[in-house]
C-alpha cells in the first residue's frame, strides 16, 4: 500500500510536465493553426504552396522524429550550443518539446479549421458585405463563432490525442508522467505504475470530454 501511495505521489510529480506540455501546446498551436488555415486558403500561390508543404511534412512524419530534430537540430545543423538556448527557467529540452508539439498540432488544427471555414455558405459573406461589415468584422463576428461550433467535435479528438501524445516527450528525457511510470515499473518490477498512469490519463481525458460536451451544448443554441 505504501508502494501505491509513493507511486501516486511520484506520478503526480511527472504530471506537472504532462500538464505543462498539454496547456502550452494548446496555447500556441490553436492560434498558429488558425493562421496556417488562413495561409492555406490564401490566394497568393506562394503562401498557399508553402503552407501546403508545411502541413504535409508535419502530418507525414512521426512527431517523435520532429521532436528530436527540433531538439538536436540547432546544434547539428547550425552549431548552436543547446545550453545557450534555455529560455529563462526553462531548459531548451522543455522549450523544444513545446515547439515540436505546437508546430505539429498546428498543422492538424489548421486542416480542421479550414474545413470549418470552408463549410460556411458564401451567402453569408455576401449578406455581411451588403450590411456593411468589413472583412475582419465578417470573419470574427459572423464566421468564426459558427466555425467554432462546427469544429468542436474534431478539435476534441485532437485535444484527447494530445493528452496521450505528451508521453512522446520522453525521447527528449523530459520527465513527464509516462517516463516516471516506466521508471517506477522497472524499479518495482510491477505493472501497477502503468495502471495508475493509465487512470491518470483517462481521468484527464474524462474531464476534457465533460468540458467539451458542456461547451457543445452551450453552443447548440439553434437546436
Amino acid at each position: 500500500m505504501a508502494d501505491l501511495y509513493s507511486t501516486f505521489t511520484q506520478l503526480a510529480g511527472g504530471l506537472r510536465f504532462t500538464l505543462g506540455i498539454f496547456f502550452l501546446t494548446l496555447l500556441f498551436s490553436i492560434p498558429l493553426g488558425l493562421l496556417v488555415a488562413r495561409g492555406r486558403m490564401s490566394k497568393n500561390i506562394i503562401v498557399a504552396g508553402l503552407v501546403r508543404i508545411y502541413i504535409s511534412v508535419m502530418r507525414g512524419t512521426p512527431l517523435m522524429l520532429q521532436l528530436l530534430l527540433v531538439y538536436f537540430g540547432p546544434y547539428y545543423i547550425f552549431g548552436v550550443r543547446l545550453a545557450d538556448l534555455d529560455v529563462g527557467p526553462f531548459k531548451y529540452r522543455f522549450v523544444a518539446t513545446i515547439i515540436g508539439f505546437s508546430l505539429n498540432y498546428a498543422a492538424y488544427f489548421a486542416e480542421i479549421f479550414r474545413a470549418g471555414i470552408q463549410s460556411m455558405p458564401v451567402g453569408q459573406y455576401e449578406a455581411a458585405q451588403i450590411l456593411g461589415f468589413s472583412k475582419a468584422q465578417t470573419f470574427f463576428r459572423i464566421i468564426l463563432p459558427q466555425v467554432v461550433k462546427r469544429v468542436l467535435p474534431a478539435v476534441t479528438n485532437e485535444v484527447i490525442t494530445l493528452v496521450k501524445d505528451t508521453s512522446l516527450a520522453q525521447v527528449l528525457a523530459v520527465t513527464e508522467m509516462f517516463t516516471t511510470a516506466k521508471n517506477l515499473a522497472s524499479a518495482q518490477v510491477s505493472v501497477m505504475p502503468f495502471i495508475v498512469a493509465g487512470v491518470f490519463y483517462y481521468v484527464m481525458n474524462g474531464i476534457i470530454e465533460i468540458i467539451m460536451n458542456r461547451a457543445e451544448k452551450k453552443m447548440g443554441y439553434y437546436q
Binding site: 538536436f72 540547432p74 546544434y75 547539428y76 550550443r81 543547446l82 545557450d84 531548451y92 528525457a173
Partner: peptide, 11 residues
C-alpha cells in the same frame, strides 16, 4: 548514444 549527442551538442 543519446547521451553522447547531448554532450556533443552542449546540452
Amino acid at each position: 548514444l543519446n547521451a553522447m549527442m547531448e554532450l556533443e551538442s552542449g546540452a
